[in-house]
Design a protein around this nucleic acid. Structure first.
Length: 424
RNA sequence: CGGGGUGUAGUAUAUCGGUAGUACGUCUGCUUUGGGAGCAGAUAGGCCGAGUUCGAUUCUCGGCACCCCGACCA
């Protein structure tokens, strides 16, 4: 994409009232726009990142056998009455239309997915399976905060699994722990994200959260480095400050943000909707459920919190909006301009996503903005690089390492065999 | 929801009970071109409502919005 055609523009300064690093950087760089507290627009660059995160999650969910669906936001009051949550869920948005009909704006989708699958499940032969979706959730947070980390409307992946018995559900649940670990590794926060024991609420003994260490978080976790797991604040007392896996008491305290969670729902929702099946003997049994959530915006914001530096955003390759930022310093020089255009065309031909900054601006401005945008590899083309024997300069955004390389070498990026900053 | 803070141009800010100033941005022109460059010109602002006052952006009250702390967060 040509940067001159991008309708958003980077700003020099962040809004004064934003304190959260993720909000400051994402707004400055033109990735998101705040409409109101906890409600954000994803602009072209931000949406590209969000979609990449979405696709990684989609791949992993599909691998785990998940079937993608898309359920409505507008949900009839009756469904929520059935589970009792119309009254008990404090952060439920309730809307009524001119006919007086009341609906909930979905904060989660058990109330929808359970009646849905009830239509299709009647025998043990129909189980198990899992269904998931990417959907905007609405939660009336009394206090939206921390930029995009805690919003009132946010994109979430929610998956629901259905099983004949607890054993099958637990097996799948255990599998999902691994799937989630893979997701967070792939989006670039693997080393700072911990499977965390949390309170099971009304459903089971424990649930599990995925917590990423960052001072921007609002949770406290206790990490057992030996087992590479953590325990959250709510249950650390119950566990007598010991690791639930090895019993060790040598736990490290960290501030963290919850990027995902998995719950054993068991029959909490199958009961009220009477979601049952006939077993091998023809006996009626309750379907056993699990559910698995990941907040996409929160993952994006967390990556910014963890990796962003004083110059701006820093994206892991897997979720960067573009792979290459082609900084063209031709400044009206035909030779340089032609060279840059040809390079851009070739990069596109190799399917290397490239943002070409062909705007007529001074170099300093372009570099500063390039740093802000955080695209992993910067390729600089200028009079200087051309006079240097037709080489280009490649800069690794993360490490700041600079290398002059032969032009042909640039295209090794296409098959991943070339990365700046790695050993020579 | 309890407490605290802040509302002035697109952004960041200054001043003031009496014509609202600066920087950045944006627009025009010229120069410049490896770290947010220069010159000239232009553009654009007092959150909303009520009260006090000859006069309110400024003082008072109410509302709203945003940020922070707490509570809450299947």
């Amino acid at each position: 994409m040509r940067q001159s055609q991008l309708f958003t523009k980077a700003r020099k300064e962040a809004p004064a009232d934003e304190l959260a690093k993720n909000a400051k950087l994402l707004i400055r760089a033109g990735y998101v726009d705040k409409l109101q507290a906890g409600v954000y627009t994803y602009l072209p660059l931000g949406l590209r990142v969000l979609k990449k995160i979405e696709n990684i999650i989609r791949e992993e969910m599909n691998k785990a056998g998940g079937q993608e669906i898309f359920m409505p936001t507008l949900q009839p009051k009756e469904n929520w009455k059935t589970t009792g949550r119309w009254e008990t869920m404090d952060d439920l948005y309730k809307v009524s239309d001119t006919s007086g009909r009341e609906n909930a704006l979905g904060p989660t989708h058990e109330e929808i997915v359970v009646p849905l699958v009830k239509q299709f499940v009647s025998s043990y032969r129909d189980l198990p399976f899992s269904a998931y979706q990417f959907q905007n959730k609405f939660r009336m947070e009394l206090r939206a905060k921390s930029g995009i980390l805690r919003g009132r409307e946010f994109m979430m992946k929610d998956m629901y699994s259905f099983h004949t018995d607890e054993e099958g559900m637990v097996k799948y649940y255990e599998e999902m722990k691994k799937v989630y670990t893979r997701v967070f590794t792939r989006v670039g926060i693997g080393t700072t994200t911990f499977l965390t024991y949390a309170s099971g609420g009304s459903f089971s003994k424990y649930s599990h959260e995925f917590q990423t260490i960052t001072p921007a978080g609002e949770d406290t976790i206790y990490i057992c480095d030996k087992c590479h797991i953590a325990v959250n604040k709510e249950i650390i007392e119950d566990l007598k400050s010991a690791c639930p896996e090895c019993g060790g008491k040598n736990l490290r305290t960290e501030t963290s943000v919850e990027v995902g969670n998995i719950f054993e729902l068991r029959t909490r929702f199958s009961e009220p909707f009477n979601l049952s099946y006939k077993d091998e003997e023809g006996k009626e049994q309750m379907v056993v459920m699990g559910c698995y959530g990941i907040g996409l915006g929160r993952v994006l914001g967390t990556v910014v919190e963890v990796l962003g530096d004083e110059k701006g955003l820093v994206w892991p390759e897997a979720i960067a909006p573009f792979r290459v930022h082609l900084v063209d310093l031709s400044a009206g020089n035909e030779e340089v301009s032609t060279y840059a255009r040809a390079l851009y065309t070739e990069l596109n031909a190799c399917s290397i996503e490239t943002l070409w900054d062909e705007r007529d601006l001074r170099a300093g401005e372009k570099f500063a903005e390039s740093d802000l945008l955080g695209i992993p590899l910067r390729i600089v083309v200028s009079k200087k690089t051309i006079d240097d024997g037709g080489q280009v300069e490649i800069v690794d955004r993360k490490t700041g390492q600079v290398r002059m390389v032969d032009r042909a070498e640039v295209f090794k990026i296409a098959d991943g065999s070339f990365t700046v900053g790695l050993s020579d």
